[in-house]
């Protein structure tokens, strides 16, 4: 039973919480959710083909165009493929890196290693992508020079280049959640596994990986969504390939409703992705 006094103090708590949260909530609702709502709404409008003015008439035409035109469908699949590949490459690189940082390196060196992983984030995005452009230059780039003795060609500018560059860009976002997941893993679990006769590899497979899975999924939310929305990297190192972001960018001024329809695709993919991983408990790891 709540006494009157409790009720008053509860009411006061609500009021205090409201006054604290009002500004961020307004930001979230108005600028974030509101903008998304308008994006969806706009995607059902159309434009006057002479004036490029948005006509507020409800139509599914934009979506029909997106899903029937092979160019757009291919861009969607390519974008999805790049996002999945980047996520896999990042996970593949980040797990051993994070394991070294959290489990093998001495505790005194760990903050230094974390800082080291973060250093690429201090440099400008464009600088990093243009460095990769230089390195990926066919025939004369550093990559071509490195691969030459093995008789392998540089991937040059194209989808592989995009995957390499994006993997480099988003790797820290994968390393950090896995690092913190591994650091939280009680070392007694590793001892227990060895104690029961498991080799290092078996311990990795049976104990470490299942326990960092939520952290890997948390990291994948970053690498996947960041890759899904990227359109600059693909312009710089992607050759003639287009991703969904480029389609949005090109249609932005000509046909805003169509651009909105294309822009909704990654949002929908992301919502589906988040819904899929919700049951793994990984979202509590973010």
């Amino acid at each position: 039973m709540m006494s009157n006094l409790d009720r008053i103090s509860a009411r006061r708590d609500v009021r205090r919480a409201a006054s604290l949260l009002a500004a961020p909530l307004l930001w979230l609702l108005g600028i974030y959710i509101g903008a998304l709502a308008i994006l969806f709404l706009t995607s059902f409008y159309t434009v006057d083909s002479f004036t490029n003015q948005v006509i507020h008439e409800f139509t599914f035409q934009n979506f029909i165009d997106v899903f029937t035109d092979h160019a757009y469908l291919n861009a969607t699949l390519r974008t999805l493929g790049v996002a999945v590949s980047v996520t896999l490459v990042c996970a593949f690189l980040a797990i051993p890196m994070a394991f070294y940082m959290a489990r093998i390196a001495s505790p005194a060196r760990r903050p230094f290693l974390v800082a080291l992983v973060l250093t690429p984030l201090w440099a400008s995005y464009l600088v990093k992508v243009y460095s990769w452009r230089t390195m990926l230059t066919p025939e004369s780039g550093v990559i071509a020079w490195l691969l030459h003795p093995f008789d392998v060609q540089s991937p040059g500018y194209g989808i592989v280049g995009v995957i390499i560059t994006l993997s480099y860009l988003w790797l820290p976002y994968m390393v950090l959640p896995i690092y913190s997941g591994l650091e939280r893993l009680p070392s007694s679990l590793l001892d227990a596994s060895a104690d029961l006769g498991a080799s290092t590899l078996q311990t990795m497979r049976d104990v470490v990986l299942p326990n960092v899975k939520p952290a890997v999924i948390a990291g994948s939310v970053f690498t996947f969504s960041l890759s899904l929305g990227d359109y600059i990297t693909v312009q710089i190192v992607g050759g003639k390939n287009q991703m969904l972001g480029n389609v949005v960018y090109q249609n932005f001024s000509l046909n805003l409703p169509f651009a909105a329809a294309v822009a909704s695709i990654p949002v929908v993919i992301m919502v589906v992705y988040l819904a899929m991983i919700r049951r793994t408990g990984a979202l509590e790891n973010l």
Binding site: P186, S188, D191, A192, D206, N211
Partner: peptide, 27 residues
């Protein structure tokens, strides 16, 4: 450790959280 014929009961029990009780014992 994995080649010694000794077993340990840990202070924090160190049960594998992702495995069932049965799987823990079977491991």
């Amino acid at each position: 450790a994995n080649q010694r014929d000794v077993n340990t009961v840990f202070q924090d029990y160190a049960l594998f959280p992702h495995m069932s009780v049965q799987e823990n014992v079977e491991y």
